[in-house]
Design a protein around this nucleic acid. Sequence first.
DNA 1: CGGATGCCTTGACCCAGATCAACTGACCCG
DNA 2: CGGGTCAGTTGATCTGGGTCAAGGCATCCG
Lengths: 247, 247
Amino acid sequence: MSHNDPKIADLNCGDCPIRHRAVCARCETDELHQLEAIKYYRSFQAGQPVIWSGDRMEFVASVVTGIATLTQTMEDGRRQMVGLLLPSDFVGRPGRATAAYDVTATTDLVMCCFRKKPFEELMGSTPHIAQRLLEMTLDELDAAREWMLLLGRKTAREKIASLLTIIARRNASLKQATKGGVRFDLPLTREEMADYLGLTLETVSRQISTLKREGVIVLEGKRHVVVPNLDRLLEETGDDSDGGMLN
Amino acid sequence: MSHNDPKIADLNCGDCPIRHRAVCARCETDELHQLEAIKYYRSFQAGQPVIWSGDRMEFVASVVTGIATLTQTMEDGRRQMVGLLLPSDFVGRPGRATAAYDVTATTDLVMCCFRKKPFEELMGSTPHIAQRLLEMTLDELDAAREWMLLLGRKTAREKIASLLTIIARRNASLKQATKGGVRFDLPLTREEMADYLGLTLETVSRQISTLKREGVIVLEGKRHVVVPNLDRLLEETGDDSDGGMLN
DNA sequence: CGGATGCCTTGACCCAGATCAACTGACCCG
DNA sequence: CGGGTCAGTTGATCTGGGTCAAGGCATCCG
């Protein structure tokens, strides 16, 4: 695994305890070498639970490949997704003994885990780890707030358009964009989309059908989406048109 | 302002850049004395804007007294509250130049502000600040995820009951609890509650009236609430009965 | 092959909460 | 004092999305 290949560094940067979105400048620093002792990899098949809410959780982790979801469930079975973890995203909380959410692999998944105790000690002695974690957590908090606007105020149609936009944006294949349209696979079932959006799976299905009928999107099979005109889709999200000038 | 008074320390712990929820053990440390140079206080009247989304924001801050809200607004005017800031809560993001949300004082408000540049430098040289900020941000993220469940899956009645519970819980006067019931003032108008809950103000009003009619709550005036039996209210929230065993 | 299972779609109907509108009461101010 | 404004309440009506139910279409497997 070469550090010169940004795509690989993006996913898993050698010894670094925390995924980096760009090539990592710190891979060579001494203090991180001890990490070999505390980290290990775990794999899960699509559909498998990673951990249940309330379970003892003796590690923190980051996603290497695949997609995991965080969900909350009420006693009567109503479910709400509260996190969507893509490669480089972090799970778990230093200083908490039990999991607060159900974590599930929605695709085949590889996670890089760190035993919690030593990770916490390392965090105490290595300031930039806490700083990096802070940065990532703030990003997640911003995403959560965007999500709250979606859940609280958007229509079903806007919710679907927003989700498609989010997936398109976070999807690498967007980079071959706008020449003949953006195309990507939906990594979620209709039901998972419904749990993400606070809808029922029937409504998700109907809204996707409507967008398809209107030509905003093209479906190739149930899961592969082509967006011939991304701006057209963006208009449906209800968001400010300027795209999103974070940072 | 004595460090021996936990109530005061709770709000504003001398030189510490970050509010502490308990008496602060670090107030005496030398490195923080420089903060005098970079911090200052600002006051706002109830209803005043603190900053608008998109504005240049050259400080980070924490709430000393009063309540502020974070809201997002869509072009057509739909509004969703995405943060409720009580004393000791932190606003602003190191490493971001513009505000991402509208911040508004809903009561008279005093904030302790830190000029962003020096604060960031301080954070770089003082590891425990980043660690403390991380801890607070993770708490906020958890709260945001609870909020997402509320927005996505709860009924209007459950939303109201949940909000009342949250206010009761975060309200100091809860400590004189259960003898004759919990009592507190609503710090939000019906419309602000609606923006918090993803409802309309009419629905908020109706649900409050219903809970009142059923004796779950008692209203003294429009704003003062008495909860004769907190468990009764908790049953209406839809949450797991065990209260909430975070951490 | 035929039955079972999982994922998705579509239709018919219903209801929680939105919308529109009228009204109350507290407070302020000229 | 009367009129204006602001916050809240309540009623009448409408509708987006939920619910219930029936099928479609792959894939798997005995």
